[in-house]
């Protein structure tokens, strides 16, 4: 009885995981730019691996399970790191299709953060001018 339940549960988990892998493969081919392809690929790396490994763990004897669980743990740890680094480099090397981006908060943020740096790099002269700009309001 419990064997049948275990089999059904692990079959559902494995098929769902394999389905996620297939979906992420389809997304990898169909999606328009690097960042959205990254989004599709990470589905296989987290949910796909996790579901298949959980389904397989239910079927293996307890002595063999740790290596499978290590695979799941490492893919959960490494997928976000890879995704973060690849997405950051994609943004910086202009691999992102700008006209598809609805809201780009990073662009305004980068402009805000870079402008003081650029002033400082110009020899510090604009930094000297800044207090002068502030002075006229104070006597009034």
């Amino acid at each position: 009885m419990t064997d049948v339940v275990l089999d059904v549960v692990s079959a559902v988990l494995i098929l769902a995981g394999a389905g996620f892998c297939l979906l992420s493969g389809i997304g990898l081919v169909r999606f328009p730019d690097t960042v959205s392809r990254l989004h599709a690929a990470s589905k296989a790396q987290t949910l796909g691996v996790l579901l298949v490994v959980l389904g397989a763990v239910l079927q293996t004897p307890a002595g063999k399970a740790p290596s499978l669980l290590l695979i799941a743990l490492f893919s959960l740890l490494t997928a976000p790191v890879t995704g973060h680094i690849v997405a950051r480099i994609a943004y910086r090397t202009d691999a992102v299709e700008r006209r598809r981006v609805v809201l780009d908060e990073l662009a305004t943020r980068l402009v805000d953060e870079h402008s003081p740096d650029d002033r400082r790099r110009d020899g510090g002269e604009p930094d000297d001018r800044r207090p002068d700009d502030r002075e006229p309001p104070s006597p009034r």
Partner: peptide
């Protein structure tokens, strides 16, 4: 970068 993403997914699919 697309190839890097595809290769990463391919390694994962190999493991699965």
């Amino acid at each position: 970068l697309d190839r890097v993403v595809a290769l990463d997914a391919l390694v994962t699919l190999t493991v699965v």
